[in-house]
């Protein structure tokens, strides 16, 4: 239920926003061109999104839905220009009807058909054909994943664990030893084939401590990344729009 006070607050904010922007356009602070109107649009979207900090409100919901729609529309167009146009339309369809100097790549029919089979998911009688497409993607992904995970992750992570502990310096050696203890203890924590009691229980508790430090570090890192985004948006409002800071 929208309260009367919320409506009046929104109206006043919209009037203030409109007045400020008309003044900026009239004084030439913002150009009446793509960039100037773009900044006003971006500011409107930014402020609408931040209005959620007050509470969930219609302005935020409108901005949110526009964002979802634009993101979907953008993805569709990018898929067309980056994948379907060069690899299906120009490689197969155009050369079939027009002399482009290139022979049609008939092999492309296979992924095109498999792609189209996916739409049969909506048919009750032919939905089983979409399984062929999923099987292709899942099988291909699994096949690529096995050697790549062995080489790029598993062996790469195990390799430093097999190096000598002594690195030439006392503190370096301590750090290497701590990493070894950390990796082994965390692996013990995730090893559920044995009951976590006695020595195994003790080692897995050390694993939990290492995990907690890592989770704390990840949390701190994520907070700082979000903070830098927040600073970026505030800089945009103060610099690009209001011109208060240089």
């Amino acid at each position: 239920m929208i309260k009367k006070t919320d409506v009046s607050i929104t109206t006043w904010i919209l009037i203030a926003f409109g007045t400020v922007n008309i003044a900026f356009l009239a004084t030439g602070k913002l150009g009446f061109n793509g960039k100037g109107l773009g900044i006003i649009t971006a500011v409107a979207i930014t402020l609408a999104m931040y209005s959620f900090l007050y509470k969930d409100n219609p302005v935020f919901k409108i901005a949110e839905n526009i964002f979802v729609g634009v993101a979907m529309g953008y993805s569709i167009i990018i898929v067309w220009f980056n994948i379907l146009k060069p690899d299906v339309f120009e490689a197969l369809i155009v050369p079939m009807f027009k002399d482009t100097g290139n022979a049609p790549q008939y092999l492309v029919i296979v992924p095109t058909l498999l792609g189209l089979f996916m739409f049969l998911r909506f048919s009750s009688k032919l939905s089983w054909l979409s399984r062929w497409s999923f099987a292709f993607i899942v099988g291909m992904g699994s096949g690529i994943a096995i050697p790549n995970f062995i080489n790029a992750i598993l062996l790469r992570q195990l390799e430093p664990m097999l190096a000598p502990l002594y690195t030439g310096s006392f503190w370096g050696t301590i750090d290497t030893l701590l990493v070894l203890i950390g990796v082994v203890s965390v692996l013990f924590y995730f090893f559920f084939s044995m009951e976590h009691k006695g020595v195994i229980g003790g080692v897995s508790v050390i694993g939990i401590w290492f995990l907690m430090i890592a989770f704390g570090a990840s949390f701190g890192y994520t907070v700082m990344a979000r903070m830098s985004l927040l600073i970026g948006r505030i800089q945009f409002l103060l610099k690009d729009w209001l011109g208060i800071i240089q």
Binding site: G141, S142, G143, A145, I146, F149, I150, I153, L154, Q157, L158, M161, D175, L178, V179, L180, I181, G182, V183, V184, S185, V186, L187, F190, G207, F210, L211, I213, A214, A217, S218
Partner: peptide, 22 residues
């Protein structure tokens, strides 16, 4: 150091999981 150790153990576990599932 500690973050690397935990992440390394998680990655080893994830890799074994992905390979087994594949």
């Amino acid at each position: 150091v500690p973050n690397l150790a935990a992440k390394r153990a998680i990655l080893i576990g994830v890799s074994i999981g992905v390979i087994a599932t594949s």
